[in-house]
Simulated scan of single mutants.
Amino acid sequence: MAPSRIAQTALYQEVAERLRQRIFAHELLPGTRIDEQLLTVDYGISRTPLREALKVLAAEGLVTLRPRRGCFVTEISEQDLDEIFPL
């Protein structure tokens, strides 16, 4: 039996994971506008994988996409956290 291959992660998934970690580490603070141009330069990527990553994070509720305004880190209340992570 041949060994199974390890699937490579899509670029947008890796970008989403890095942004998720930065949000959880409070490097990107709640309510902060996400500077797409700066992130594309920092990560050395084009805007397409970044925008796909932001869509993933928006679906998770970590960021809020506002048409013609940009993307912002979602402000999460303690009550929201209790609902997300019940003790």
Rank of each mutant, 00 (worst) to 15 (best):
M1I: 05
S4K: 13
S4W: 10
R5Y: 12
R5G: 08
R5M: 05
A7I: 02
A7R: 15
A7K: 14
Q8L: 09
Q8G: 06
T9G: 05
L11T: 06
Q13I: 07
Q13A: 10
Q13D: 13
Q13Y: 08
E14N: 06
E14P: 04
E14G: 08
V15N: 07
A16L: 14
A16R: 12
E17I: 14
E17P: 11
R18I: 11
R18G: 13
R18S: 12
R20G: 08
R20F: 08
R20C: 14
Q21P: 02
Q21T: 05
I23H: 03
A25W: 04
E27G: 02
E27H: 04
P30C: 04
T32F: 11
T32V: 12
R33W: 05
I34L: 08
I34S: 01
I34H: 02
E36W: 08
Q37Y: 12
L39W: 04
L39H: 03
L39S: 01
L39V: 01
V41Q: 14
Y43S: 08
Y43D: 05
G44P: 05
I45C: 07
I45V: 08
I45M: 09
R47M: 10
R47G: 11
P49K: 09
R51H: 13
E52D: 15
E52H: 15
E52Y: 12
A53L: 13
L54W: 04
K55V: 04
V56C: 14
V56P: 06
V56M: 15
L57K: 15
A58T: 04
L62S: 10
R66P: 05
P67Y: 03
P67M: 01
P67T: 10
R68Q: 14
R68F: 03
R69Y: 13
C71R: 03
C71I: 07
F72S: 00
F72Q: 00
E75Y: 00
E75D: 09
I76S: 11
S77K: 03
S77V: 00
E78W: 00
E78C: 00
D80C: 01
D80W: 00
L81I: 00
L81A: 00
L81E: 00
E83W: 00
E83S: 02
I84T: 02
I84H: 01
F85E: 01
P86F: 01
